[in-house]
């Protein structure tokens, strides 16, 4: 066990930001913290980073209290982006690397590698303020892990990135995982969480609604999402046993089943022993589960 959050509560005078939160993250794992705005994600990050104190509970890193560890093993990308506007890309990366305890000579290789990897070669000597928002974000992202931290916290790392840069970031996160970095991140974009996370914690107003593996969460709901392409009318499909809801798409229906056991009888009815173009039974997406758990409001 690497990070362990035990019954942590953060209470202010008139509200509770985080309520009795517990989860653990294993070494080399990617852990997702998801929740709406104000769910307590950033407060949790700040308590882990020792920027805020816990009201109750403990946060441990390798059995040691998080306040007592050397902070250089941590990397952090805050939700709102911030870099030094008048500093060049290169000097910014060296500065943050040195601030995290690395020697300048040990940073050359890393700086060169990540600048090239994130396609910032021509911006190396440019001041950060002259870069586009997306490029600034890439610089800050590199700055957060240039010192090769053991534990990296990324608060909304994907927001504001275009699809190409999102893929770059996704691959970088996976590369860091392979190197053994433990990663905790939050995101509003559930597809990213779904693709990257091994385990997750679903927060609503400071309270954990679910903590565990993504697969376990999906299994809770079962394979109840059925997508079919057929000429049969919506009215006929609605009358079938086990169908809770039908959404009509462009050229297909998406049925929500009460239980995955009804799938067989629906298949028999729809195919009638003949070839069928599409019949797909799936788990709910994380996005759908999230909306169901937190009450259908925007993420």
């Amino acid at each position: 066990m690497t990070l362990s959050i035990n019954q942590v509560t953060k209470r202010y005078q008139d509200f509770v930001a985080v309520d009795n939160l517990s989860f653990t993250i294993e070494k080399g794992e990617i852990f997702g913290l998801i929740g709406q705005n104000g769910a307590g994600k950033t407060t949790t990050f700040r308590m882990i980073l020792d920027l805020q104190e816990t009201t109750e509970g403990t946060i441990m890193w390798n059995e040691k209290h998080i306040n007592s560890i050397n902070r250089d093993i941590l990397g952090y990308l805050p939700e709102e982006r911030g870099i030094f506007p008048a500093m060049t890309v290169e000097s910014q990366l060296y500065f943050f690397g040195e601030l995290r305890g690395k020697l300048r000579k040990d940073l050359h290789k890393e700086v060169d590698y990540w600048i090239e990897r994130f396609e910032l070669e021509d911006k190396r000597k440019a001041k950060a303020e002259t870069l586009s928002k997306g490029n600034q974000q890439k610089v800050q992202l590199i700055a957060s892990f240039i010192h090769q931290p053991e534990f990296l916290i990324l608060d909304e790392p994907f927001s504001g990135l275009d699809p190409v840069n999102k893929d770059l970031l996704k691959n970088a996160i996976l590369e860091l995982k392979e190197k053994g970095t433990t990663i905790l991140f939050s995101s509003h974009q559930m597809d990213n969480v779904e693709e990257l996370c091994d385990h997750l914690c679903l927060l609503k107003r400071g309270v954990s609604l679910f903590t565990g593996s993504l697969l376990d969460l999906k299994k809770q709901y079962g394979k109840t999402k059925l997508t079919i392409r057929t000429d049969i009318s919506k009215e006929k499909l609605e009358k079938l046993d086990g169908v809770k809801d039908i959404q009509v798409g462009k050229d297909q229906y998406t049925l929500t089943l009460e239980d995955e056991t009804y799938a067989q009888s629906i298949f028999d009815f729809v195919s009638d022993g003949k070839y069928i173009e599409k019949f797909s039974l799936d788990y709910l997406t994380l996005d759908e589960i999230f909306k169901d758990k937190v009450g259908g409001t925007n993420v």
Binding site: L49, L51, R71, L74, Y76, L77, R81, G82, R100
Partner: peptide, 15 residues
């Protein structure tokens, strides 16, 4: 400006 640009959060995570 450091506080406004949130670079302070990054700095305070290490110092």
């Amino acid at each position: 400006s450091e506080k406004g640009s949130r670079v302070l959060e990054v700095l305070l995570a290490s110092v």
